[in-house]
Structure formats: C-alpha cells, structure tokens
C-alpha cells in the first residue's frame, strides 16, 4: 500500500493539507463536461480535478447534478461534451465495467447490492475483476484456483474486520438495515482495491452514530490505503470535517471550488444554500 501521506516532498501539482497530509498530482481531470437528458441540462460545462490521495467532496442542493457527475466519472452516463483525463491520459468513452477495471469503484445513492447474496458473497463479488483463473484453468488446476480463492478470502475477511461487520458475514444483505447495507456496499467497492473510490451520499439516512462510524471508515481508507476518494454528501458538518477540497454545484453549474473554508465563505454558495432545506 503506497502511503503518500508519509512522504516528505510535495509532488508536482500536489499540496500539503492543514493536518499535514501530502496530496499528490492530478489523478483525474474533468474538462468542460456537459451532460444533457433531452431538454434537461444536468451538467453545464463543468471542469475540476481530483488529486491523488485527496478526499474530494461534491456538494449542492437536490437536483444540482452531483450524482450525474459521479455517473459520468464511472461511465454510467456518457457526457455530450468534454474530456476526462485519467492518470495523465485522455479517456475514450468507456462502459462502466471498463471504468471499473481501470481501478475506479463506486457506491450508489440508492444502494445497489446483490440482495440475494450474503455480505461475504457481496464483498467477494467486488473482487471479480481481480480473479485471474478462467474456467478452464479452474477445471484443470484445482490447486492453483484454490490458492487464488484463499487469497481473495483473506482480503475479503480483512475488509470485513476493517468495517466491523463480522456479525453479518453470512446474512443475506436484503435483510440488513439500511445503515449496514451502506457499509456492505462500501466493503464491496473496497474489495476491488480501487485507486479512485466514488461514494454517492454514503451517510444518507444514517443516525449520528452511524455517520460517525462511516466518517471514520472513509478517513481510514484514505489514510491506510492511500485511496483517492470523491464523495457526495448533504451533511455540511461531515463534508467540512472529511474533505480536503469541495466542488459546489447548483442547477448543473459549478458555483464554487476550494477548501472547506473557502467554500463556506463563498457568497454564491451561501446564496445557493439559503432557503434550501436539508436534513
């Protein structure tokens, strides 16, 4: 696990956070992205970047286009205009599964788990692209396949320990309460050992205690594995605590971009949020 946080020199394009972590160069660069659904313009000419090792938040009122942005990054939506640069290379239009194979994992605002599978199986399925052996190999060399299987199991157990969900290992996830489902979904995304992790409202619908747990997990993932994280969140307190930099969207446009402090004092942002009720 590379840990940028403990390196001393600041890489090109990087910066040092107030708490002393060091952020690297640009991992993903979004340039002039425009996304339309028929007449609705969900994203209007938005540009921003995500740097290696940082926690980047996307905020904005309901319908601002935040989820659409995440869907563009993960390949679920194809923007009509704009370019996406990933690891210094321009990305051609890709299918979601291709983006996933490039090391981008995600969770969904409305939770998309394999409801019929257990927690263990869900997280294991998160590793499907990491599994090398194909059918033929598995039929012929059981030994090799078994070794691989046990490596995957080990990694999965590590994630289960990390997220403190040992008690629900064998529970079909459809039966779990909402907060735990969100946690399993995070686990499945982590199982892919992603370079970029996209979280769409990871704390929506949670109580205070669950939110605190989730915040801690997000910080730990970022710290221990050096995973770059882009997340959407409505709870301002959480956003200010977690993120290094924040993009603010409103009606499909970017109205602010900067550190939590900068964004908090931005007049356009304050206006956009006035009169908008959030949980």
């Amino acid at each position: 696990m590379s840990s940028l946080t403990h390196k001393q020199e600041i890489p090109e394009g990087g910066y040092r956070t107030p708490d002393g972590r060091i952020i690297g160069g640009v991992l993903m660069d979004l340039k002039h992205i425009t996304l339309r659904f028929g007449g609705v313009v969900a994203i209007k000419d938005i540009s921003f970047d995500i740097r290696e090792g940082e926690i980047r938040a996307i905020i904005g009122p309901n319908g601002a286009g935040k989820s659409s942005m995440l869907n563009v990054i993960s390949g679920f939506y194809v923007p009509q205009e704009g370019e996406i640069w990933f690891r210094g290379q321009k990305r051609p239009p890709l299918k979601p599964y291709q983006v996933a194979r490039q090391g981008v994992a995600r969770t969904f605002q409305n939770i998309a788990l394999f409801k019929g599978m257990t927690t263990l199986d869900n997280i294991m399925t998160g590793r499907v692209t990491k599994m090398k052996s194909n059918m033929l190999e598995q039929a012929i060399w059981w030994g090799k396949a078994e070794r691989e299987e046990s490596e995957h199991r080990e990694k999965v157990e590590e994630i289960i320990d990390f997220l403190e969900i040992q008690a629900i290992r064998k529970t079909p996830v459809g039966r779990l309460p909402y907060g735990l489902q969100k946690r399993v979904e995070l686990g499945r995304a982590l199982a892919a050992e992603p370079d970029l992790l996209l979280l769409d409202e990871p704390m929506a619908g949670m109580n205070v205690e669950e939110k605190e747990d989730m915040s801690r997990f997000i910080l730990d993932v970022n710290d221990e594995y050096g995973t770059t994280i882009a997340l959407i969140e409505h709870d301002m307190g959480v956003v200010m605590d977690l993120s290094d930099r924040v993009v603010v969207m409103d009606y499909g446009k970017k109205i602010g971009d900067g550190t939590p402090d900068e964004v908090r004092n931005n007049q356009a942002v304050i206006d956009a949020y006035l009169g908008v009720v959030h949980e």
Partner: peptide, 22 residues
C-alpha cells in the same frame, strides 16, 4: 468460478454488476 459468480451478480442486480467490472 469467476464467470459463475459474475452470472449470479448480473442475475441479482445489473447496475451493481456493472459497477464491479462485469
């Protein structure tokens, strides 16, 4: 098998299956 697992995943939830790279 990996393919069998992918098959079960798709049968369960298309979106989720896509997101894990299937």
């Amino acid at each position: 098998t990996k393919q069998g697992r992918a098959l079960r995943a798709v049968a369960d939830d298309h979106q989720a299956a896509l997101s894990v790279g299937i």
